[in-house]
Design a protein around this nucleic acid. Structure first.
Length: 326
DNA sequence: CACCAGGATAGAA
DNA sequence: TTCTATCCTGGTG
């Protein structure tokens, strides 16, 4: 796994570095032989959890474009160059999408279209990665920038990453470390602390670092980067309320549709599909490891007399209704 | 057994 | 004081 910190200072570095890392991680995961068992009747909890950040981030990559991108990234391991240089790369025949579309075009036009396609897919991937990081931040109540993490934040991030990618628990090996410490560590040092998954953790941290760098760069400029500016209840300073949290999950069906979803969005009726998973997410968000659905549902019931959430007219298990739908 | 309703209480903000 | 988190009793399919 290449370290992209070094590329951060070069114009296009972070974007491409972020891509490269994501793709490499994707490849690693794909080659591990594990599958996301989508669509069967009873997906495992693990599959559901993977469905959170990971799947939403990479599902669109399993397309022809993605295969092509992966090949490109393999063909040129150091992509820290502007994509305008890409035309000099060999193996144009490995680009089925472009080939099928660009018959009869001049090489120059072909090159431009190729660039645009690549940039589009690229920004799509980067956007998804950023969104998923943002979502994780909300859930964990941490800042996107690892440099600002205290030891507790680091442990949360570790727990989350291990949880999401089914890594063995390595939190102990990183105890007492702040985000700053973590960021200063090399991949080798990560491996020393955790031989099993140090490299993976280091790679994920790299993605976060790049994302934070990009965020900073975007906020410096006048460009309105709406990727990070969604209404964010976790940034208001007030502790998040359960109903807000549930609404946040519901607003991200791409990430959480498998554990909570609208039955009727207009009426505000939603169903908790995986009570244990939602409870775990809530516990993670509130730093309450002992949270379970029993307690979560008790809190929901407190909303009955406050007129925030109620049971729908036809009461069903695990189905609730916002009294004031959005 | 998992879910549901709601009382009681403690604790944090 | 509000908003849980926790525990609990009792009820339902």
């Amino acid at each position: 796994m290449s370290n992209l910190v070094g590329s951060l200072s070069e114009g296009y570095g972070p974007r491409i570095g972020l891509m490269e890392n994501s793709l490499a991680l994707m490849e690693r995961n794909r080659s591990s032989g594990e599958q996301w068992d989508m669509g069967e009747t009873k997906p495992s909890v693990e599959a559901l959890e993977r469905g959170g950040l990971y799947f939403s981030c990479f599902d669109m990559l399993f397309t022809e474009d993605a295969a092509w991108l992966v090949k490109l990234s393999e063909a040129s391991p150091t992509l820290a160059l502007p994509m305008t240089r890409m035309e000099s790369r060999e193996e144009p025949e490995q680009c089925p999408v472009i080939d099928s579309q660009e018959q009869g075009l001049s090489p120059e036009l072909e090159r431009q279209v190729e660039e645009r396609s690549l940039e589009q897919v690229q920004s799509l991937v980067v956007g998804e990665v950023l969104k998923d990081i943002e979502t994780a931040c909300k859930l964990l109540n941490i800042t996107p920038d690892p440099m600002e993490w205290n030891t507790g934040n680091v442990q949360k991030w570790l727990l989350w990453t291990e949880h999401l990618y089914r890594l063995p628990h390595a939190g102990k090996a990183f105890q007492e470390l702040t985000g700053k410490d973590l960021c200063a560590m090399s991949e080798e040092e990560f491996r020393q602390r955790s031989p099993q998954c140090g490299d993976t953790l280091h790679a994920h941290l790299d993605i976060w670092k790049s994302a934070a760098w990009m965020k900073e760069r975007c906020s410096l400029g006048d460009s309105s980067e709406e990727l990070w500016s969604e209404a964010d209840s976790s940034c208001s300073g007030q502790p998040i309320h359960l109903w807000q949290f549930l609404r946040e999950l519901l607003l991200k069906p791409h990430n959480y549709g498998r554990c909570i979803r609208w039955l009727n969005k207009e009426k505000g009726i939603f169903k908790i599909e995986d009570s244990a998973h939602v409870a775990r997410l809530w516990g993670l968000r509130k730093n309450r490891p002992a949270m379970n659905y029993d307690k979560l549902s008790r809190s929901i019931r407190q909303y009955y007399k406050k007129g925030i959430i109620r049971k729908p007219d036809v009461s069903q298990r695990l189905v609730y209704q916002f009294v004031h739908p959005v």
